[in-house]
Design a protein around this nucleic acid. Structure first.
Lengths: 348, 348
DNA sequence: CTGTTAGCGCATTCAC
DNA sequence: GTGAATGCGCTAACAG
């Protein structure tokens, strides 16, 4: 009811109005059991009556801790990262932390500015999907100051920080298992440069699944082509030239997958019907071009949530600077090649 | 180089190390011209050497002002609102303000929690794309405390606050002018309930354009049908029944537009070729269904930027609580009916 | 031009 | 259980 004018109502005003001391009010605010219920009720009443609002800035200053965490996203305009952000945010919200979200628009310069600003705000932690080309030094600034950092989705070369990234191996394995369950027995792997970690992981998952399904690992079925559309197109004739051609192709990414679909059509084959095509949803655009393409997508919400949970743990354990602690997130197979082949176990 | 242990380096440490007083350091930090350049350089040097970081929390406490502004978005997962958010954020960033972005996921409960939290952080202002069903009281809390509020994209019934919303009249006018420039002389307006403000605005823009193009305002061309797909379908026979049927239809929204396209096809007419169809991009889904449909879309980046600029003005002028100050944002015509008719001025 | 003094709103020992 | 002092890191007046 009190208009309050412009002189902000403080804890002291509340104390006076309630006829107690400041510290009592402070204890009530923190839900301490050391205050008699009657007093507590009276204090809460006055707080409401006076329209008092807690000043977290002052509290943080005094306690030398903060309830805000920095959260940098390389591109909020990209729905994938927007979802990632929302997944992270939700966890923080319900844990009582306030995320300071910022979009760096894939610019290291913008990112540097924002990092500085974030640092000045005195955040309890930093969770970041880094812009391309981020220097490890940017991260080191934080870890050296004892502020925990979690890298999400994207790693930073040379940075020693916790990271939550997709589990490529598992994603590839599940996709290939899916194909095997549909009855495919000749499954190729197409695309990707053999000297990259990501490719290595995905190939490993592919082999895991073959082994688990009791299928032979025919090296002829691993087609090395560039990880783009043209690579996919080029992979098709090489598959078809084999003595025993594959009935399904696991592609390095959706661009390759799109290429494979195109290549199949050129040969008069229908992707999804004659040959099942699966690809990791890295580009997230090519997939729209071909409904016949099944994709393996990162569960962005889940990844964000995992990252946020890791962050909370780091903050609460007060670890100064986490070692490379990989929290893997598994992928989701978005099917569209469906029940093409008969399931091997019909009535299971 | 100094590890700093865990005892944060403060302005005092800097002062001592540089052999000056705290206030001198403070002045340097604020870029005051009252400090001799030599001293300034020395201070900056020690700041860097000691790895000092400015504590904005303490500063804000002292000055009783803040450089952070609250920014609530009803659905960050929706690309439209994500762009809106980015547009807002960009302006704040470059003005030295830090936006505290939060996603309310269209939940008034979540929103209430976030608003409380935001309020405790002591923001300088609040810019909000409110969740559906937001009570005016939620906004009043802020304005009463002298914190400026800007409503963006979505208004809040009963709230007295600045608002930045699309300029429906101008959007309709530009779309119809576009049609007139393409050579159309019989342009209908289809859909919408006559008792809503939005409809009134769009009809007004339609009439503005007709008048400007010197075309007669034939009331028979205003087709009153419900603002949905079925309404659009129903509008077609009514148009065709006219003595002098229209060659173009301005629709209330894209759902109506989609309906009109369907209706035309049922009659063997090709939308976009035989009859130009334009619709406001309210639903933003129907449009994908018909490439022949030209849409009038809100420029989300621009809208966000306008809203942020208004916010900055309110903060800097220190206005306690702004009246309903509408910052209109114009719309963007996304053409797809193209140069159907001959331009009246061929070589202009 | 630079140093001194006094709080901003709150949390935290300690006594009472 | 409650109250009285003390300072978090910084800025804002003045005094030199």
């Amino acid at each position: 009811m009190e208009p309050g004018g412009h002189g902000r109502v403080t804890i002291i005003d509340v104390a006076e109005a309630a006829g107690v001391s400041k510290s009592t009010v402070s204890l009530v605010l923190q839900g301490s059991p050391l205050v008699r219920p009657a007093t507590q009720a009276k204090v809460r009443e006055t707080i409401r009556g006076l329209g008092y609002v807690y000043n977290r800035g002052a509290a943080n200053l005094r306690r030398a801790t903060s309830n805000v965490v920095g959260m940098l996203i390389n591109d909020l305009t990209n729905p994938f990262y927007a979802e990632l952000a929302v997944g992270i945010e939700r966890v923080f919200q319900s844990a009582g932390y306030v995320p300071l979200i910022a979009n760096t628009a894939e610019s290291v310069i913008r990112q540097a500015e924002v990092l500085k600003s974030i640092r000045e705000q005195g955040v309890a932690g930093l969770i970041i999907s880094a812009a391309r080309g981020t220097p490890a030094a940017a991260i080191r600034d934080f870890t050296q100051a004892g502020i925990p950092v979690v890298l999400v989705m994207r790693g930073v070369a040379g940075a020693r920080a916790a990271a939550v990234v997709p589990d490529n191996r598992r994603g590839a394995r599940e996709a290939v298992e899916h194909l095997a369950n549909l009855g495919h027995r000749r499954i190729a792997f197409a695309g990707g440069f053999t000297d990259t970690l990501v490719h290595e992981e995905r190939i490993a998952g592919y082999r895991d699944a073959l082994a688990a399904a009791g299928l032979p690992a025919d090296e002829a079925l691993v087609i090395e082509v560039p990880p783009n559309r043209d690579g996919g197109i080029a992979a098709v004739p090489r598959c078809l030239a084999l003595a025993d051609p594959p009935t399904a192709v696991m592609c390095f990414n959706d661009a390759v997958g799109f290429g494979v679909c195109l290549g199949l059509k050129q040969r008069g084959l229908e992707p999804g019907r004659d040959v099942a095509v699966v690809g990791f949803d890295d580009i997230a655009e090519a997939r729209h071009a071909t409904p016949a393409l099944t994709t393996v997508a990162v569960d962005s919400f889940g990844l964000g949530a995992r990252a946020a949970q890791l962050m909370l743990r780091l903050i609460q354990r007060g670890e100064p600077s986490a070692e490379t602690d990989i929290g893997a997130v598994h992928l989701v197979v978005r099917d569209s090649c469906g029940a093409r082949r008969q399931s091997r176990r019909e009535a299971s």
